[in-house]
């Protein structure tokens, strides 16, 4: 039997797009549903290194994921991130060391020929008579803007200049201070978790408690402390009681 007029789109033929890894380009091939399919061949380079590109990705399939991520997790993990920031104690002292100054016209014109200095935290101009802090690297910020940042990190937001601790701090045994910092972080995390427990989100507090107590256990073992910390013990008690 012969057909005189073939249908415009034969149902047995399908146009498929492949990616040729040799040519680095997409190629369109017609594949037949015949019982003995031969592997597709790139019309450019005549190799078989082709990959079928038949999985259309939605541009927005990560969207639902993003919006479904609970704000609780954001809060907890952002908090944890901030608390685990290096040396929160040291920065607290540097924060109090840096004096609050009242901005003068002279200061502004010293920093900028036009006397326009932007606070890099709020991106607003710093004006005369406002309260500000000048870091040792000369960068100037609104006092209210830079102080919360210095509590987290003792570095300049613009140039990452590390603000040195005052000299008395340096005399302290570094290891001791590290341990205390660790304990402080733990205690503060426990306090935050205690706040969270008011609504006791999905047992999250339990999990974090467990992680925290494990962390504490490791911490005390690593610093040569005794084995008086039990992983199941109530946390929030005496965390800095290491001998």
């Amino acid at each position: 039997m012969t057909t005189t007029a073939p249908p415009p789109t034969p149902p047995s033929l399908e146009l498929k797009t492949y990616w040729c890894h040799e040519c680095d380009m997409s190629v369109s091939l017609t594949s037949s549903h015949s019982p003995s399919p031969s592997p597709p061949l790139c019309p450019q380079c005549h190799t078989h290194f082709l990959e079928l590109m038949d999985s259309p990705f939605s541009q927005n399939d990560a969207d639902s994921f993003l919006h479904s991520s609970s704000s609780l997790f954001d809060v907890v993990f952002q908090d944890a991130l901030l608390l685990l920031a290096p040396s929160p104690r040291k920065t607290h002292t540097t924060e109090t060391i840096l004096p609050i100054i009242t901005v003068t016209e002279t200061l502004l014109s010293l920093l900028d020929p036009n006397g326009v200095v932007l606070c890099a935290v709020c991106k607003d101009a710093i004006s005369v008579d406002e309260e500000a802090k000048q870091l040792p690297c000369d960068h100037l910020y609104h006092s209210d803007c830079i102080t919360p940042w210095l509590r987290l990190r003792s570095s300049c937001p613009l140039c990452r200049f590390r603000i040195s601790e005052d000299e008395n701090e340096d005399e302290n045994d570094e290891d001791d201070e590290e341990d205390l910092n660790g304990a402080d972080v733990m205690r503060e995390m426990m306090a935050r978790m205690a706040e969270l427990s008011e609504d006791d989100f999905y047992g999250l507090r339990m999990t974090l408690n467990y992680i925290a107590s494990r962390h504490e256990l490791l911490h005390s073992n690593a610093s040569g402390g005794g084995d008086h910390h039990d992983a199941s013990s109530e946390v929030g008690g005496d965390v800095d009681g290491e001998s």
């Binding site: 927005n60 399939d61 990560a62 993003l66 954001d74 952002q78 901030l82 935290v121 987290l152």
Partner: peptide
């Protein structure tokens, strides 16, 4: 997704594509 304490905390960024 910008956190409440921005710019003290970084924004959360994801590729949608």
């Amino acid at each position: 997704s910008v956190p409440e304490h921005y710019p003290l905390q970084p924004p959360q960024v994801r590729f949608l594509t």
